[in-house]
Design a protein around this nucleic acid. Sequence first.
DNA 1: AATTGTGAATTGATTCACAGCT
DNA 2: AGCTGTGAATCAATTCACAATT
Lengths: 208, 208
Amino acid sequence: MKRPPRLEIPRKAIYRLSIYLRCLLRLKANRLPTVSSEALARAAGVKSTQLRKDLTYFGQFGTRGLGYDVEQLAQLITDLLGTNSLQPVILVGVGNLGTALLSYRGFEQEGFEIIASFDIEPRRGRHSTKPLLPMDQLAAFVHERGVKMAILTVPVTAAQEVTNQLVAAGITGILNFAPIVLQVPEDVIVNNVNLAIELENLSYFIQG
Amino acid sequence: MKRPPRLEIPRKAIYRLSIYLRCLLRLKANRLPTVSSEALARAAGVKSTQLRKDLTYFGQFGTRGLGYDVEQLAQLITDLLGTNSLQPVILVGVGNLGTALLSYRGFEQEGFEIIASFDIEPRRGRHSTKPLLPMDQLAAFVHERGVKMAILTVPVTAAQEVTNQLVAAGITGILNFAPIVLQVPEDVIVNNVNLAIELENLSYFIQG
DNA sequence: AATTGTGAATTGATTCACAGCT
DNA sequence: AGCTGTGAATCAATTCACAATT
C-alpha cells in the first residue's frame, strides 16, 4: 500500500477517514455501488469539499461525473488505516475502567483484539478467555507476540512509569485514559481519551 | 459568574481548560501557592503563550512578575466549566459498553454522577444502587430531576431515534459513543467518543 | 450533466514580540 | 527582574470557485 507524504496530512483528516469508512460500510451493507462526495460528506457530517480534499492527500479515487465506488473506497481506507487484519492490543491497568473495557466486545467488531491484560496485582476476577498477567511478564509477552498497541487504564500516579515500561517493551501506540500528558519518544504515538473532560466540556456548553 | 463572548472562543481552548484544571489540582495537592504560565503550560503539554491566550478569553487572572494563584485559578476554571456542584447524568443503552461505564467509578471523582440508566429491555443485571429503568420513563425522570446531560451507549441503529427522545425530554448535552453523526437542534450539544476510531488512528500512525 | 480534483482565498488557531504591570 | 496580556504575524485548516473529466 503506497502512502506518500504522511507528514503534512492533518491529524484530523485521519480521524475523518475513520468516519468516512463507517459511512461507506453502511452504504455497502445497503448494496449501494457508488456514492458522490456530496452524499458521503453529508452522512459524515462534513462539507463535500473537505471530503474530497482529505482524499487527495492519498491520491485520486473518484470518477468525475459519477462519484466513488463504495467498496473500492472502503477497501482503500481500510488499507490506509492498516485495519485489514485483526490487530492485537494489550490492556494495562485492570481497575474500574480497565475491567469495564475488557468486558466491552466492541473492539473485535472493529478489527482489534485485546489479547491480554496486565496489572501489578493480578486479581481473582478472570476475564473470559484472555490472560491477566503480572507486569513483569509484559516485556516478554509484547516481544513474543509482536504487539504494537496498548490501552492504558492505570491510575494517574502510575501512568508515566507504566508508559516508560510500555515504550521499553516496544509498544509504539498508546491509547491513554489517564488524565496526564504522557512523555514519550517521538516515534511513539499517544491518543488521549478522557471521559471526564468530555463531560466537563458538555457542562460548559450547556450552561446558560 | 461572568462569561462574556462565548461564541468566538475556540472549542479546543475549552478542552484545554479542563487539562489546566487537572494540573492545577495536582499543584494544589502539593501545596504550591502560585504557578507561572511557563510551568503550568509545560505540565499541560502546551506553549505558555497558548495558555495565556486561552485565559484571556475569560479575563485577566494573573499577577505580572509573579504568575497565577493556583487555588484561585482552579476555582475560576471550575466555575467556568460549571463543575462546582455534582452534576446528574443519565446513561442510555445498557449493553456492553453501557454496563462497562456504569461500573466505572471515575465520573463521581470528577463531579458527575450517573443517577439512572435506561434501556428498552431493562434486564436482570442490577447495577449497584442506581435504578435501571425502561425507556418510557425517561421523559418523566429527566423532567422531574432536571437532568441536562446524557451518556448515549445504544447500538448505532437506535442512536438517532433515542437521541430524538432525549432531546424531546429536555436533554441538552449528549456524550455519544455510537459511531454515527447525530442530528440535533442547534441548542443541543453532542460530544463524540469512539474508541474504535482512536485505535484505528493509532493504527495508522504506527504502521511503517 | 454531473461530479471530481485542486490552486487560490479565506477563515481560524497558534506563536511571536514586546508593551505594561508588580 | 520577572512575568502577564495582547496586537500583529505566522502557520494550519477549511472552503471557494472553477477547470478537468467521464
